[in-house]
Computed example of a mutant assay.
Amino acid sequence: MTDLARRALAEAVGTGLLVTAVIGSGIMAQRLSPGDVGLQLLENSTATAFALTVLILIMGPVSGAHFNPVVSLADWLLSRRDGLKGLVYLPAQVAGAIGGAVLANLMFELPAITTSTHLRTGPALWLGEIVATAGLVTLIFALTRTGRAALAPPAVGAYIGAAYWFTSSTSFANPAVTLGRTLTDTFAGIAPASAPGFIAAQLIGAGLGLALVRLLYPADPLPHLDRPEDDRESHRSGQQPQRPGR
């Protein structure tokens, strides 16, 4: 298997398991705490935050653990290198998200694919997605541009867990995950008609996050999201780290 194929596989599996965690924990929460939406959200957000942290730890050394098309796009826009990686990552992430939704549904003895009827629309929810995505992009690239990529797993997990609660949209912040969640008519679902508005808001949020990163961290002394363990070693030795594919 080529290095790019291996990284794409990591992105597909990681994104898929993230969607499985989001949907699966939502289904479990709905069954364990019927009638208590607040408790359901607490259970769903806690499981998602922990799962995301673990998945970043597993897949980060392989692919950078983007699991998110806007993160891959932001990485390319900031570096202008390795455009082929982005072309491979994005379909892998979407395919993984679809597979993750199917897996979650099947684990709970539901039809493999059901179209969600959960409408999530309106300016307030779109603003929530803009805020959630802008914060996520800013966090990730603030860490990588300051040599603190090792903190990404707990930091990103904590941010997403918190953003479930402080954003009106419960922080999807991910176009691939949004598409995956259209395929389950459960607590975590989103109606297909609502997905375009969420994705548009996520793209706007990513753009705002990128602008903030460029203003706050104009220099980029370290590589971006691939091979963080190599980045840290190069940084400690004082050498200019090598970017994958160079």
Rank of each mutant, 00 (worst) to 15 (best):
R214F: 04
S25L: 11
S63T: 08
G209K: 03
Q239S: 15
L77C: 13
V94H: 03
L4D: 12
R120L: 13
A51K: 05
V54Q: 06
A112E: 10
L210N: 00
D231N: 14
A162F: 09
T138G: 01
V94Y: 13
R243I: 15
A8G: 15
L4F: 11
V62L: 13
A162Q: 03
P34W: 04
R246P: 15
G99M: 03
T15Q: 13
L17C: 12
T146C: 11
T20P: 01
E233M: 11
L55A: 09
P228M: 06
R243D: 15
A49R: 06
L183S: 05
T186Q: 14
S79E: 10
L210C: 01
N105Q: 11
T46A: 15
T138Y: 11
P192K: 03
G96A: 11
G238S: 09
T167I: 00
A10F: 15
T15M: 12
A47Y: 05
L139M: 12
F166T: 01
S234C: 05
P154N: 00
A158N: 02
G35K: 09
M59Q: 07
P218W: 02
I204F: 04
G14S: 14
L39W: 07
V177R: 11
R236Y: 10
F67G: 02
A124P: 01
S63D: 08
G60Y: 07
I160F: 08
G64Y: 06
T182V: 08
F187Y: 14
Y89L: 03
L9I: 15
T138P: 03
Q40H: 08
V131W: 06
I204S: 06
L125K: 06
G16I: 12
S169E: 02
R81I: 07
A134L: 05
G157E: 04
R243V: 15
Q202A: 01
A74H: 05
G35W: 06
R236A: 04
T115V: 13
G24C: 13
L84A: 13
I130W: 01
T146Q: 14
N68L: 07
Q40C: 10
D75L: 07
R31T: 08
L4E: 12
T15H: 13
L4S: 14
A92C: 11
V13W: 14
A142H: 03
G245Q: 12
P218D: 00
L203V: 07
V71C: 10
L203F: 08
E233H: 12
E229C: 00
V54K: 04
